[in-house]
Design a binder for these strands. Structure first.
Length: 591
DNA sequence: TTAGGGTTAG
């Protein structure tokens, strides 16, 4: 009894310092035992010690156990310290609870709690994650009032937030107002332009970064390589690759590796992609997937399949994205049976739930191969609501295999989902035009006019000596315009002699044949090819980019051009690559 | 005791 009394009256009280050390050790080695220490704190009557509680809550948050941390925060003796507010805002933001993070910031502000630079660098990413420029602007106004806009961490978070919200102009203003810029803020601006599809601007900021002597790191390179990939700027991409290899502080890590593989593939040089892949010291799932998709884009489904098998044999498990890559490769090449087999393996062997993207690949695969019924069946039975993309892919197949009936049904469905997109009206109109159904053509044109819809113009570009030249349809703005049109007409007459027969079915209007022929000749890819022939030497490969799909007639014409000029022409359109050589195309006309 | 920017498909 005596012994019990003694224990009861004098519990084993542990010192605050001892508990602090336990928290520190525990949060590193065994965060699961944190509740045990929590219990000791309660037992030791240390619940009034703010510093100790803060460390405990912090340890809970670091080990992703927010519930007890929240309880400590809510029942904090007197007021929780600024540090704990910040850590709570950070935890919510990093765990994609953006609204909670932002609301906690508002609570803080309404209670008059002091905010510091950390508060802003934690809440701004939450505004970015929520894509809420409204909240972002409120926080921005707040931080200017308190005087943190010159802090480079805060400014970087602001730039990133505005970019992610699509407000690139506001981001640029913040960026320009920072007087002493380091690598990170430059990176935020470059990647902002990249993600907003302003690749020319990304290049310009990158150039000014290099000119002002700010060090580029791996993140800079990954971003700028994306721009090279999007612009098809192979020469520029090679220069960046050189710079990476020469640099003493940059290694080919998995990020840079994937960016390089992607850049070379999208710039038409899949051999270089392979070289980068082979030379990478470490590869992850994304390195493999990038090259597999690259092969797919280039119509090299056999290479894609062999690489996919090698990947599995090397112990890497494919994910949903890897399957999109391999399935789209098969679709592009008309390998329907193998494609179906892989789709089956994906669901049964790898237990990957198919998404709309996978179904899209299957629809495309069946559609291109002329199996329109099977393609429609996929859409009907997939159990996911179709989007306009998957229906559009089927509509495109209806054009390839001219099936007006199915096309009309699909168009009705597409327009109920996406009525403001002029592309669908144009596609259906083209199908009518191919079937010489001029009433149908008129119907689509009237519908477009009533809705005031304009199809975004097609453009093509070509890089000559590191400079990108872009052409719109019937473009006459280029200084060499007269010479370009001369080259093009000369090519047209030469390929006619070789047997090229123009296919005017992709000319929308019901006009005379002569005018239709003129309209074909003005296609942007034709202008870019003519310019390439004009400005490059024999034997040089022409690399052209087009924002839309290459039309059937330009495809045929380019095959002939490659034959009569002996030129290799690599044309990348919105879907994939067409590699023309000696009168044939790598895509096997499955586009 | 707390910070910023990055890779693959369609």
């Amino acid at each position: 009894m005596k012994c019990f009394d003694l224990m009861w009256k004098k519990p084993a009280v542990e010192s605050v310092n001892g508990l602090l050390i336990q928290i520190q050790q525990c949060s590193i080695s065994s965060p699961r035992t944190l509740p045990l220490i929590h219990a000791r704190i309660i037992k030791s009557h240390c619940l009034q010690d703010g510093f100790l509680l803060t460390r405990l809550a912090h340890a809970y948050l670091t080990s992703d156990t927010p519930a007890p941390a929240k309880r400590i925060f809510t029942h904090f003796p007197k007021k929780p310290p600024l540090f704990l507010w910040n850590e709570m805002i950070k935890w919510y933001s990093r765990n994609r609870c953006f609204r909670e993070s932002i609301d906690l910031y508002y609570l803080m502000a309404s209670m008059g709690v002091r905010r510091n630079e950390f508060t802003f660098t934690f809440v701004l990413p939450a505004c970015a994650g929520a894509r809420s420029v409204l909240d972002g602007r409120i926080v921005h106004v707040d931080l200017v009032k308190i005087g943190y806009e010159r802090n480079v961490f805060v400014a970087t978070a602001l730039v990133d937030m505005y970019c992610k919200c699509g407000e690139i102009g506001l981001a640029r203003k913040v960026f320009d107002d920072v007087s002493s810029k380091g690598t990170a803020i430059f990176n935020a601006m470059v990647s902002g332009y990249v993600n907003n599809n302003e690749h020319g601007m990304a290049m310009a900021v990158f150039d000014s970064m290099q000119n002002s002597g700010v060090v580029s790191d791996a993140i800079t390179m990954v971003s700028i390589l994306q721009s090279c990939a999007s612009l098809g700027a192979l020469r520029r991409g090679r220069m960046i690759h050189d710079q990476i290899q020469r640099s003493s502080h940059l290694d080919i890590n998995v990020y840079i590796g994937a960016a390089l593989i992607n850049m070379y593939a999208r710039c038409g040089s899949i051999e270089d992609s392979r070289k980068v892949f082979d030379e990478m010291p470490d590869r992850d799932l994304i390195s493999w997937t990038t090259l597999i998709s690259g092969y797919g884009m280039h119509g090299l489904a056999k290479n894609a399949e062999s690489l996919f098998t090698q990947m599995i044999n090397s112990g890497i498990k494919p994910d949903a994205v890897a399957f999109v890559g391999i399935l789209s490769s098969f679709g592009h090449c008309g390998m329907v049976d193998i494609g179906q087999n892989y789709f089956h393996r994906m669901t049964k062997e790898y237990r990957i739930e198919p998404t709309l993207e996978h179904y899209s690949c299957m629809v495309d695969m069946f559609g291109r191969a002329g199996k329109l019924d099977e393609a429609e069946e996929v859409i009907r039975t997939m159990g996911v609501a179709p989007d306009s993309g998957i229906l559009g892919s089927l509509l495109n197949s209806c054009k390839l295999h001219l099936n007006v009936q199915v096309a009309e049904r699909i168009t009705e469905h597409i327009l109920s989902i996406d009525p403001e997109n002029a592309g669908w009206y144009v596609l259906m109109s083209n199908i009518y035009a191919t079937a010489k159904n001029w009433n149908g053509v008129t119907k689509m044109r009237v519908l477009m006019k009533e809705k005031n819809l304009i199809k975004p113009p097609g453009w093509s570009s070509i890089e000559i000596n590191g400079e990108i030249h872009s052409f719109l349809v019937f473009d006459q703005r280029h200084p060499d315009s007269t010479a370009i049109y001369d080259v093009m007409r000369n090519l047209e007459s030469r390929i006619r002699i070789e047997g090229y027969v123009p296919d005017t079915s992709c000319v929308l209007r019901n006009v005379g044949e002569d005018l239709k022929l003129d309209m074909l000749c003005g296609h942007s890819e034709r202008l870019a090819i003519a310019f390439g022939i004009l400005r490059t030497g024999e034997g040089e490969v022409l690399r052209i980019m087009k924002n839309l799909r290459v039309c059937l007639d330009c495809h045929t014409a380019t095959k002939f051009i490659s034959r009569i000029t002996g030129r290799e022409i690599i044309l990348r359109d919105s879907k994939r690559f067409h590699h023309f050589k000696d009168g044939s195309c790598s895509c096997g006309d499955y586009w």
